[in-house]
Simulated scan of single mutants.
Amino acid sequence: MHKPKLQSDGFLPRAIAVRFFLVGLLSISLGACSTTQVLSSSQANQTRSLQEQVQLVGRISIQYQQNDQAQTASAGFEWQQAPQDLHISLSSPLGQTIATIHENAHGARLEQAKQEARTASNIEQLLADSLGWSIPIAGLKGWLQGFDIQANGKAIAIPVKDYVALQSQGWQLQFVSWQADTGVIHPKRIDLQRHTEELGEVKIRIVVDEWK
């Protein structure tokens, strides 16, 4: 199956940018762009629960190998999560909407301007059908809140400490920093890494800019 080639250079053509997002969910400069509020010990130790309704805005980057050369691509995203519904909006570094992805009980749908919509039974299947491999969307539903959801559905709270590392769903994760927004304690930055046949060593960085 023919797989699209990714491009770097920040501002991505629409079709390529969508595929980049589907392949991996912040450029190298993200760490310099973000500021993190230092949490008090009482905040770090407070009881947390997995929320059913989540809305946040952030940035994402992926580093990968193509033709034996290191590549980097980046995008902004808005994530709106409900128990049976997930909506993701992808934007270019200049703030232009590139595509929207929606998943509910009926399946997943990807839409972008001037192109036919693509559908599948779920987002991860949509990614696999489009690119031949997928990313852990199901995992991100918990990780973005600071939880790891087990195979039995149990949500395990990740300790609110900088640089906490764990393995889940075939990924190496590091919760680099945390922040409090509107009374909610959540990860500020998450790094993911795994080896793939398609893109070699893939490194993903997610920074949450705003929790709504």
Score class of each variant (00 low, 15 high):
W178I: 03
Q167F: 08
V164C: 06
A99I: 07
F175I: 12
V164E: 13
A128E: 12
G132V: 05
H106V: 00
G132D: 09
T100L: 00
P159N: 11
G153S: 12
G153I: 09
L173A: 09
L144Q: 02
N104A: 00
H102A: 03
L127M: 14
W178Q: 08
N104G: 02
P159E: 12
I98H: 00
A138K: 07
K161S: 15
K188L: 08
P159V: 10
Q167N: 15
Q125C: 02
D129R: 01
A165N: 13
L110G: 09
Q145L: 00
S177W: 01
E116W: 05
L166Q: 03
K188Q: 14
R109K: 15
S168F: 08
L173S: 05
W171C: 01
L144T: 02
A99N: 04
Q112H: 14
L166N: 04
W143Y: 01
Q115P: 10
V160A: 04
D148Q: 06
I185R: 07
A99Q: 02
T100M: 04
I185K: 06
D129Q: 09
Q150H: 07
L192I: 10
Q150R: 10
A157Q: 15
W171P: 03
P136S: 13
V184Y: 05
A157G: 11
V164Y: 15
I137S: 14
A155I: 06
L192C: 13
K114C: 09
E111T: 15
I190V: 15
T119H: 08
I149G: 01
L127F: 13
V160R: 14
R118F: 11
V184A: 03
A155P: 07
G183K: 05
L173H: 04
T100E: 12
D181E: 14
G139T: 07
L110V: 14
F175Q: 02
Y163Q: 15
V160P: 00
L126K: 01
Q167W: 05
A180Y: 06
T119L: 02
A117Q: 06
F147E: 08
S177R: 13
I156D: 10
I149K: 01
A157C: 08
Q193E: 15
F147C: 05
A105P: 00
T119S: 11
T119Q: 14
R118D: 03
I156L: 02
W178C: 04
Q115K: 07
G142S: 12
G139A: 11
A157W: 10
A99M: 07
L131Y: 13
K161T: 15
P187L: 07
A138Q: 11
S168G: 10
S130W: 03
A180L: 14
P136Q: 10
V160G: 01
A105H: 10
H186Y: 02
R109L: 13
I137W: 10
H102C: 00
G170N: 11
A108H: 07
A157M: 07
G139E: 13
S168T: 06
